[in-house]
Design a protein around this nucleic acid. Structure first.
Lengths: 334, 334
DNA sequence: ACGGCTTACTAAACCGGTTTAGTAATAGGA
DNA sequence: TCCTATTACTAAACCGGTTTAGTAAGCCGT
């Protein structure tokens, strides 16, 4: 069935397609009331829907933004995306969301695809394996904002949690509650992922600050599927921490599975604190204490920063990282 | 900075842009090796990235699909979307995902926006307030697949859970475990949302099948924010069920909050079963029994059905609903 | 009455890639 | 040597909306 175009509307209304375009874009300064009504009627009668593809080709903008997430399984990622979506929508932009699964090759092909689709800008949770390509895009003055992770050079605005601070808050609270034997659970740092690396660093620093020794065996940083067995091994060795600090939600899930499996009571047998929240943690039998990221604010700022870059085209040589303060939500698990 | 076009590449390689287009589209049948290499070199040297906008205008297809979710807060929605994404990606399509918040006006404006962006098809979790518009799109032979909810006429393929069966499985299990006083918790049915309505219907039917009376006060179907107080009221009245059946994950969250607030033990003081799962339910102190939807299969089939409709353009007058069997995951909460 | 300015509208070029019909050169067979 | 078919490549129209420069009519002031 034939698609209705402006030409069809023009013929129906007895005007030119330029006039129809003026009408569609609400440019009425030099348009008579009679013309206005005829075009309006024709559009209604024919059920005309504009084709944004043609408009985008001419105007060299699409009103779309690409978001490339390193690992969408993290709850905080989807929360940040929600905020980005809301902010973009307010400004007439829509998102393509892609999940790179922490793979640089996947990330690269997504960047290519999104650039080919002429997105107006990108928000990337970078995997850290495409640094040269990021530079090329910088040279091409393509608008990008990084979120959650830092790359080797600050060529684009970068927004992320103050990770060391988050760890410090966690350890400070554990110590305050009388816990001095503290373990840490993380997903793998093999790829040098910023939050994980920084959180472990913050953990170590704060232990030292409290005059506590660092028990290397109590730091579990593995692929998700291996966390459980590593924790079991540690537990069975007899030299056990009194509490665990999980550095993200996926690590927490594995930790809770381990705790369940060993029939441990929280906080009697083992204390628990984690970074990132979930609705279920609040209503667990023992509600879990967490350190939240201000995900809404991060997402909103990321979107605003990108939209500003898109409009202004004002590219700086370097950008200062923007760090966000973590938020303690103290419940009953310590 | 000027964007590189095929014309630029053609000039650099000493060929026409038609030749470059042939190269880009891997049409080498009538192309000499020398030409091939010259074009390849030029593309590499200039860093040419194709503009899919121009391509889409000419070919009248964009390789994008719109997904409009009625309420993205439901975990199963995001699981279905993940499956749709995976399947679309295999076939070279990408998604715009929009959240209608159960509002027909929002849904309508998203449909307009996505059609204007020339998406090749739509997957909609329909809100039930745009039935005339769906018909217009059917008449225009625009490819659509509905998921999770049924509208008044079967004009597009529709995939959803066998909701009554899901409720039956829940009630059957509760009865089997000796529970005869059973309450139900749901989010609001004010908008006649298919799953909620059908699940309550299935609940009633199965109670009757078991010779159990239907206690109207024990059926709580409210806006999410009002569930807690309604449950409290019911509980305080003294006439209490032995177990609750939550018809979706958001209702379950409110139920668990209520249970927590009243310091009730699961399953000693109250039994719990719900439709839809979450990682945390497995590792709760009392792991919660659930009835899962085969979300991956539903999503994959929805994507395949739409892609087939896009390619074949074979529109039928009517379509049979496709119902998916629920899956019981029996844990310890009954 | 005439000239200049404003109003109302329009023709056609453009955005960038696709595709089709056309052209030129070459090779092979009669 | 000539004719036909194939190979290799290209010019230009097209997709649909935007935008700019142009045209015509009318109004106002001199």
């Amino acid at each position: 069935m034939k698609k209705i175009t402006m030409q069809d509307v023009a013929l129906k209304a007895g005007v030119s397609k330029s006039t129809v375009s003026q009408y569609i874009n609400s440019r009425f300064e030099f348009m008579s009331i009679a013309t206005k009504h005829r075009v309006e009627e024709a559009i209604k009668e024919l059920g005309y829907i504009p084709n944004h593809i043609a408009k985008s080709l001419k105007q060299k903008k699409t009103g779309t933004i690409g978001v490339i997430v390193a690992n969408i399984l993290h709850t905080f990622s989807t929360e940040i995306i929600r905020a980005i979506e809301d902010e973009c929508e307010k400004n007439g932009f829509h998102l393509f969301v892609c999940n790179a699964d922490d793979q640089p090759t996947k990330e690269r092909s997504y960047i290519d695809m999104l650039v080919a689709k002429q997105v107006d800008g990108l928000i990337i949770f970078p995997t850290n394996g495409n640094n040269d390509y990021y530079k090329q895009l910088k040279n091409a003055e393509f608008p990008i904002v990084f979120v959650d992770r830092v790359i080797n050079e600050p060529i684009f605005p970068t927004l992320l949690l103050d990770n060391e601070s988050a760890s410090q808050i966690a350890v400070d609270l554990l110590v305050k509650k009388g816990r001095s034997k503290i373990g840490l659970v993380s997903t793998s740092i093999a790829q040098n992922v910023t939050p994980r690396v920084e959180r472990i660093k913050g953990f170590r620093k704060t232990l030292v600050t409290h005059g506590l020794s660092i028990e290397e065996d109590w730091i579990v940083a593995e692929k998700r599927q291996e966390i459980g067995s590593k924790l079991q091994h540690l537990w069975d060795s007899g030299n056990r921490p009194e509490a665990f600090f999980a550095t993200n939600d996926l690590a927490l899930i594995e930790l809770l599975k381990f705790i369940k499996k060993n029939n441990l009571a929280i906080p009697e047998d083992i204390g628990v604190i984690a970074i990132d929240d979930s609705p279920f943690l609040e209503m667990a039998t023992t509600p879990i204490s967490v350190i939240k990221q201000p995900t809404f604010e991060i997402g909103q700022n990321a979107a605003d920063t990108l939209l500003q870059l898109i409009v202004s085209k004002d590219f700086k040589d370097h950008y200062e990282e923007k760090r966000y303060q973590p938020i303690l939500v103290e419940r009953e698990s310590i």
